[in-house]
Design a protein around this nucleic acid. Structure first.
Lengths: 292, 292
DNA sequence: CGAGGGATTGAATGGAGTCAATACACGTGG
DNA sequence: CCACGTGTATTGACTCCATTCAATCCCTCG
């Protein structure tokens, strides 16, 4: 099996001359490196990170069951993480672009739980995990950054769950496009133009629908002059219209309020004088106010 | 707003006499505490954990925007984490039962990104985050455990994504039931009988469908003598039938192979002699074999 | 230039959402 | 103790949106 990077212990990679990364010159630096660390922090990180390797579309970064040897940072391109059903079909469970960190699925057991595959030509930095762990121990700022990254992953996953639960399929695709746009911004690029680093089939899989539906929605958006599409290249023409299509035709799957809303009393609930409303206000278990 | 636990700095809670937890006596110990730590580790953890507080159904543990003051460990009951759409509808993004850890959504920014609400009467341990962080720094085993927990969360989220992408709605509900059963085992209880700590509406929301559909599927399973249902109490009668309903009627959303399958060559791919197949075998970027 | 993978569009079927009525369980107050 | 009310669960009937199946187009690469 082919590889772009060395197995541990390090074997010389074909295109490898001096294996250290040049983080100080990397555009993704702001995302990868702890902000609050001093210059020595950056240096110590640079010392262990292996410079970027390039992947072709379809190449595996790691597979479920592999020992966790590296964490990965995407420099450019796009990578998906996938899970397989018993009967072999795949489900995409995460997508990663420039500045994102991969491999966290291996932290629990030391073995990766997912497959990671490039969906596009990509460039990836390797972070040997044992060295990184040592660094975490020595440099609190690095440990803190790792914690941050894991915390971000959790939030990301929550957002994904939200996204792929949206009611009409149109809303899902729209939410997906908005998400991509926002990610693009976070990476310092334009919110109005970007490319989806994957096929329609992959988008469909990711969003829990079919490639045809994705196509139809994007065609419709294109016809209505909300976006322009050419293959994987997307340009947003009208953000307001785009956002408008999120709520419109909101079905009722998430019925009324499963849970009482934020702050103050409900009009209805006036009929209970001092025995604090049992359900009409948020019932906090801790003595702190929101945003406290 | 009412609370079961003190705001920092600690205020006396009504039912609080001596605030330390008794982890050494807790059934969830094996799940909460680092395995590889010595007895002093357990003691130092016990020293900072506040003993369990009880929550009524609907009570908030924390809300999006709150400062991260505690991590939480579920002792008994059930808690959901939710996100809200711009127009106020809620989406359940996670469910947590005995032995699970909550609050990780606050690690990235120091503010919680989600709401956490009890879906059932629950008992929750509080772990003051600043002290815990200090402990992480002092005791590597604790840091390691935190990393493990975060890693598990990532895997959990991936599983959830998988689960709620299943094709026929029946499969989703079935997968959900199996999941619950497995969790129950992990907690040392029976795989055959358990209670779903939430309403049909919440299940529907969680699975991305409606409460009616959930009802119908469970009725059907019940009619076919695969499970027995009484309200939130479920008893599995026939695990094989249950699992059988996962793949059956597998639609094709995740079309053929988006990505080439595991190991060996495809029959088709024989027609490329030595120029290593470009797509018919897994194309590993790293020089390690699966499960290496 | 031909082959193959990806994207697009059409037409038909069916599954799941929607609306609505009813049953059930629980806690409250008369 | 029972009537009542609210929240939850169950079941039915109808409609429609998304999946399916299928045909065509486009682009890239050998």
């Amino acid at each position: 099996m082919e590889c772009i990077a060395p197995r541990l212990p390090i074997a010389a990679a074909p295109d490898s001359r001096g294996d250290a990364a040049r983080c100080s010159a990397c555009a993704m630096q702001k995302i990868c490196i702890p902000k609050n660390g001093d210059s020595s922090t950056l240096i110590s990180i640079e010392a262990i990170i292996r410079r970027a390797r390039s992947l072709r579309r379809g190449q595996y970064l790691y597979g479920a069951g592999h020992t966790l040897h590296y964490l990965f940072a995407v420099r450019s391109g796009a990578v998906k993480t996938i899970m397989r059903t018993s009967d072999g079909r795949e489900q995409i469970v995460g997508i990663y672009g420039p500045g994102d960190t991969l491999g966290l699925d291996g932290l629990a057991t030391g073995q990766h739980a997912l497959d990671a595959v490039a969906t596009d030509e990509s460039s990836i930095c390797l972070i040997p995990y044992d060295m990184f762990r040592q660094l975490c121990h020595d440099v609190p700022a690095v440990q803190h950054r790792l914690t941050e990254i894991m915390g971000q992953q959790v939030i990301r996953d929550a957002n994904l769950k939200m996204l792929s639960s949206m009611q009409p399929m149109e809303a899902r695709v729209v939410a997906f496009l908005i998400e991509l746009s926002q990610l693009n911004v976070r990476r310092g690029f334009s919110p109005r133009e970007f490319n989806i680093g994957m096929t329609r089939a992959e988008i469909g899989n990711y969003l829990g629908t079919t490639l045809e539906t994705v196509c139809r929605v994007m065609s419709a958006l294109s016809r209505d002059r909300v976006i322009e599409v050419q293959g994987k290249r997307v340009r947003v023409l009208d953000f307001d219209s785009l956002r408008a299509r999120l709520d419109s035709s909101s079905t009722r799957t998430s019925t009324a309020n499963l849970t009482p809303r934020p702050g103050t009393l409900d009009r209805v609930s006036q009929k209970q004088p001092q025995t604090r409303s049992k359900r009409q206000i948020r019932d906090y278990a801790l003595e702190q106010s929101p945003f406290g």
